[in-house]
Design a protein around this nucleic acid. Sequence first.
DNA 1: TGTTAGCACTCGATGCACTCGAGTGCTAAA
DNA 2: TTTAGCACTCGAGTGCATCGAGTGCTAACA
Lengths: 353, 353
Amino acid sequence: MLTPRQNLILSAIVENYVLSAEPVGSRTLSKRQEMQLSPATIRNEMADLEELGYLDQPHTSAGRVPSQKGYRYYVDHLRAGAEMDPQAVAALREVFRRRMDELEEIVQQTSLVLSQLTQYTAIALGPQVHHEKIHHIQLIPIGSDKAVAILVTDTGHVFNRQVQLSSNIPPDGVSHMVEVLNRRLHGVTMSRFRSSMYREMATEMAQTMEQYEDLISLVDQLRSVGVEENARVFVGGATNILAQPEFRDIDKVRPLLEMLEQGEGTLQQVLTVDTPGIQVKIGMENENPTLQDCTVISSVYTVDGVPVGGIGVIGPTRMQYRRVIQIIDYVTSALTKAFTERLGSGREGGMGH
Amino acid sequence: MLTPRQNLILSAIVENYVLSAEPVGSRTLSKRQEMQLSPATIRNEMADLEELGYLDQPHTSAGRVPSQKGYRYYVDHLRAGAEMDPQAVAALREVFRRRMDELEEIVQQTSLVLSQLTQYTAIALGPQVHHEKIHHIQLIPIGSDKAVAILVTDTGHVFNRQVQLSSNIPPDGVSHMVEVLNRRLHGVTMSRFRSSMYREMATEMAQTMEQYEDLISLVDQLRSVGVEENARVFVGGATNILAQPEFRDIDKVRPLLEMLEQGEGTLQQVLTVDTPGIQVKIGMENENPTLQDCTVISSVYTVDGVPVGGIGVIGPTRMQYRRVIQIIDYVTSALTKAFTERLGSGREGGMGH
DNA sequence: TGTTAGCACTCGATGCACTCGAGTGCTAAA
DNA sequence: TTTAGCACTCGAGTGCATCGAGTGCTAACA
């Protein structure tokens, strides 16, 4: 545990360094308002803090820089205080006030506004559809042996896929198949449908059906519907990292940008945490080696207490922790609210059947 | 017009420089197989070529580098010769052999494979739906005053949108509306529907309908459906530019990456050309100032002669012109073929109505 | 006992002189 | 017309001196 004065100095160093990106010297610190100490005293404290591992010194005659441990301490002892930047609040209100037609549009807009407000890179994931239930399946024939299959979930999510039919199915055969499908699948969750269930189900249905082969094939084609949409990752402000001095070196940014470009899977992992509340992963605390020079601040948003997606901000460890945490906090609530309005509570009973 | 020998030397310089990214000296050139000349002779020719504007000299004691005019000449006089890289052919065959469910998936895969094969950045646009015709409209109620509207085009493209209904519509009112919509809209092109038509149509229909307000509102909500999907741009290998030595400087890449990140509109412009065939835009020939250090090689693919999308490769002006042109050429045919199979010919009469 | 002034010391950054070598242009000979 | 020879140019790399921000330590001070 640090003394109050060490705490003060550490915080001052963090806050100074976050803004200037230059090692902070004792002189600079002693000039700060709240710092009523001479440079020499501060130097002594800094030497102690360095010995304790909270500060680093790039080289002997340079100022001090917070170590990852230093940031961790700073974050853990952030006094809630300080109001949130009113401009940010206004911008966020505006975004969530806008009418957005698609659920995914909300998520995408979120990633954009997050990146704009923080000037870091933002990622947003979701919404996941595992737990959504099948509401309706429809086949619309186009051409003689093709059809568009449409699957609507209880929350209004729509998936579609072109499917191939064997060409000798009579017209009422199709409608019969659709009828059977709907009767059997209404209310089944997407994840259940995707998992083993489809097989047992197909077999069962086939007993009462003539077009055995066709049905199996149809269900099989449908099964993969929506998998890729399952948890789309939106990246906002990928190029913002280029503005950070710690990433002026192409070879440093490249792996990061590559991850952002194609790392659907990786990013999903980054955002998929069970722990509720805001996560702050500093440098080495990140499992992903590509992120070990970065801080990731993330959080999951929920519907009726169930996590359906996540948001996060990626930047250098030299990050504006307070600000980003406040913003993430706000956005998480806003998303939770927005999604709950559309998907939440009424889901079980409000469908009118 | 250049002499055959100047031509030879210019080509040799281009090809050497494209690979090495270093200014080419007379000594280096004279060592090449096909070059039976002494360094001194080559120097003379190079001096002439520089005076004519085909070569640049970074500084007095450096080798020569092709100017944009030099590249232009090189491209214009490319002898068709040379077989296409068999590895590339194999990779492309493989990609287009794969079964892909969504039209857009084809386009996306194309952008990926293009970027992998060329090691530059690839963009792919399409398919555009302006000219597709409405095949079917459907409303699936979810909740009491909401529904999912689904619009299927004759080519199997599906669009969907949640719409708001006034809550006092009787059940058969909805189905009546849908029936009227389908009767009136079947066969109408998307672009026609989106443009002024919808208004006149709504008025006309309203005369025979009770739910005047509801119908107008519904049509209006539907109108914007699919607009954003209209011509999605896929970017492949955005980070490939980082490997190019001419873009080692962050400040040089940044505007480019920013354009790739968010420049839907801009990229669309880049790829939207009426001229058929392969376009090669070298440096200043690009209208977009961000691209004036780049070469863009692009082409449009068609269905029944109508352009429905485009592909392109973006790299430094020091580009492997022959290779990229060959690949773009191949991919254009492959895309045209793939899309024609799905959308083409049968569109007018093969729908079975 | 904690704080501060003073001072020698460290070390990266900056600037400058110097060398090295790839490559040129020019001239004269083949 | 081609080529050998040679002086010249200029960027890149290297060594060296200078500068200054910042430190650690010691001794004096409250």
